[in-house]
């Protein structure tokens, strides 16, 4: 029971991170490897706002997420838009996002140093709650609530608003969407904004949850995120949510049963297995093999 709760808690952060990944992939068919750098920079931004400016975390979280969205717009403008329409945009986009990630990491390294930074003590009022035999901290509960709420908002946005309809149209077929009068460039920019804002929010929550932020914090979650979107099916938001919780829970149980040194092995085992057996994932539809 306790393990399941911890798994859901971890999974909610993975899912929130991966949803942003999969959104951009669904729309552009490009893997944005700078997503983890946005995640990391937003965690640092929230840390600076809370730690040095003395801001309340409830205000710092949306501000940091907004910063993430803006970083996403910058990313789209400098690393993705210039490549659009090139025949090799699939791989060159991946490389240019790696370049952007490197630049972001260098900036974080210069500004915050290579060491682990922490939120000041008591920046989030925390107390344990008892649920049957299990213990949940108020912080954990809040984090799960926030990420579930954000993912629900995203789903609603994609399903029911004009913007969401346009995003889905562009994901389906950019040319047809353009013919029908959708401003494709603008929709792509919007998806980057949303994706990166969610990734940034995940970064802040991650920083709060484990209370340690360093310039390479994005690395491990990047690989978890990849496993999540592969399991869920590339481009499928619902799939990413389900897979995020699944991998979080699986990971916690592995640590409890087998040992913590195999924590990361879980996601890779899942990743390989899915790629070999069912490359389109649980809910994916796109053909993953060329011709």
């Amino acid at each position: 029971m306790q393990q399941a709760i911890n798994g859901i808690f971890l999974g909610s952060i993975y899912a929130l991170f991966a949803v942003g990944y999969t959104l951009v992939f669904g729309v552009l068919d490009i893997l944005n490897l700078a997503h983890q750098a946005v995640f990391m920079l937003c965690a640092f931004a929230a840390l600076t706002l809370v730690g040095q400016w003395g801001m309340h975390i409830a205000l710092a979280l949306p501000l940091a997420a907004a910063l993430g969205g803006i970083l996403g717009l910058v990313l789209e403008r400098i690393a993705f838009r210039p490549l659009r329409g090139r025949s090799d945009s699939n791989i060159s986009g991946l490389i240019s996002s790696l370049a952007a990630a490197t630049i972001f990491e260098a900036i974080a390294l210069q500004l915050f140093g290579p060491d682990v930074s922490r939120f000041p003590f008591g920046s989030f009022p925390d107390r344990p709650l008892h649920l049957g035999h299990a213990t949940v901290s108020a912080l954990q509960l809040t984090i799960v609530a926030i990420s579930v709420a954000l993912m629900a908002i995203l789903t609603a946005l994609l399903r029911a608003t004009p913007l969401g309809r346009r995003i889905r149209a562009v994901a389906e077929n950019p040319r047809a969407a353009r013919i029908l009068g959708v401003d494709v460039d603008r929709i792509i920019a919007w998806s980057f904004f949303i994706s990166s804002a969610l990734g940034g929010a995940a970064g802040v929550l991650f920083g709060l949850a484990f209370n340690s932020v360093s310039p390479d914090v994005g690395r491990s979650i990047e690989l978890k995120g990849l496993a999540v979107i592969i399991l869920g099916g590339m481009g499928s938001v619902t799939g990413a949510v389900i897979a995020g919780f699944a991998i979080g829970i699986l990971e916690v149980f592995t640590v409890a049963r087998i040992g913590s040194s195999y924590r990361d092995a879980v996601s890779f085992a899942v990743l390989f297995l899915i790629l070999l057996v069912r490359p389109r994932g649980l809910l994916g539809q796109a053909a993953t093999r060329e011709a």
Binding site: L31, I91, L226, I230, M234, L271, T288, E290
Partner: peptide
Amino acid sequence: RLRGVFLAIATIGF
């Protein structure tokens, strides 16, 4: 056998 992006992911995993 996997398409570009999937190959990149699989090799990162390896």
